[in-house]
Design a protein around this nucleic acid. Structure first.
Lengths: 155, 155
DNA sequence: TAGTTTTTGGCATGAAACACCATTCTTGAT
DNA sequence: ATCAAGAATGGTGTTTCATGCCAAAAACTA
């Protein structure tokens, strides 16, 4: 079983890989003050532990013609276990929904939906979200601009 | 100047790199039906164009002991250009704020703040957010669970 | 301190990235 | 339809990187 505790070097590695996920073991080594092979081993361990979930390319939404982010707050009629399950399954299936959180407070879910234009959002609402039964209300807020998107956790 | 239009192969490449940002040119090649060297060239071009902004490691928040995501909606007293600028600068500086959007509607900003525990959030509010002048109100909603976080844009 | 365990750093091997070039494909004009 | 010009492709050689292995160093325990 892999070790479960992270030390300062691990955190430095995580931070460096959040900034550049393709950094080589040697570059990492210089950053964190260790040689390449223990660095590579630590990275692999953290992957195996699930600390590092995956690596991803960060894409400019505007340049791929998906400039609209809509935040949709959703309230369900009831919060029965199986209703939530069905909702989660649908959300997971729909590619327009890039983020989804179960929330405290008035609203049950907060989604971020990414689309090409408002018409595409309307289609998403009509053909998908509003067809799900159990949805009591939807409140959409539109993002005018992305001020920050950091990828770095405050370790 | 680099070409500006993306074709189907480019989109496949983007999709593949969102799923695995460390995929090799050869693996990419198989996925998209091209040989390795043109694949690598397309990737580099998209990096140069800014379509691919960066690569990042995706980290499990729970396993690095940062389990709390708070969404904070913020309303400013006025929307003067320089007020917005100062707000943006502060947000950018604070590592707890991982995402920030300028919004339409009642509230001006939507932040996602990541912290270790509620006490850390309280500190963030007291020592940072509420000390910014120009902030008229803050409404915090807590995420109970992350249902989806996809990294893949609906290309 | 001595013994045990863990972690480190170097090395060899196989794979990947990168730059270069000939060939193929596409395009546009005649 | 033909031909020429430009662009994209796929292969090759070189350098760099990842990976597995092992001896040495460090940390930890008794």
């Amino acid at each position: 079983m892999p070790k479960t505790r992270l030390d300062d070097i691990d955190r430095k590695i995580i931070d460096a890989l959040q900034i550049d996920g393709r950094m080589t073991a040697q570059q990492l080594a210089e950053k964190v003050g260790l040689s390449a092979s223990p660095c590579a081993r630590r990275v692999r361990l953290m992957e195996d532990m699930g600390v590092i979930t995956s690596y991803t390319a960060v894409i400019d939404q505007d340049l791929v013609d998906l400039p609209i982010s809509v935040f949709a707050s959703i309230k369900l009629e009831r919060q029965r276990e199986d209703e939530l399950e069905r909702f989660n399954a649908a959300i997971t299936r729909w590619p327009e929904v890039v983020d989804c959180y179960l929330m405290t407070g008035q609203r049950d879910y907060l989604l971020r939906v990414v689309v090409r234009d408002l018409h595409a959002y309307e289609r998403f609402l009509k053909e998908k979200l509003t067809r799900l039964d159990g949805v009591a209300s939807i409140e959409s807020s539109f993002a005018l601009a992305q001020i920050k998107r950091s990828n770095r956790l405050p370790l």
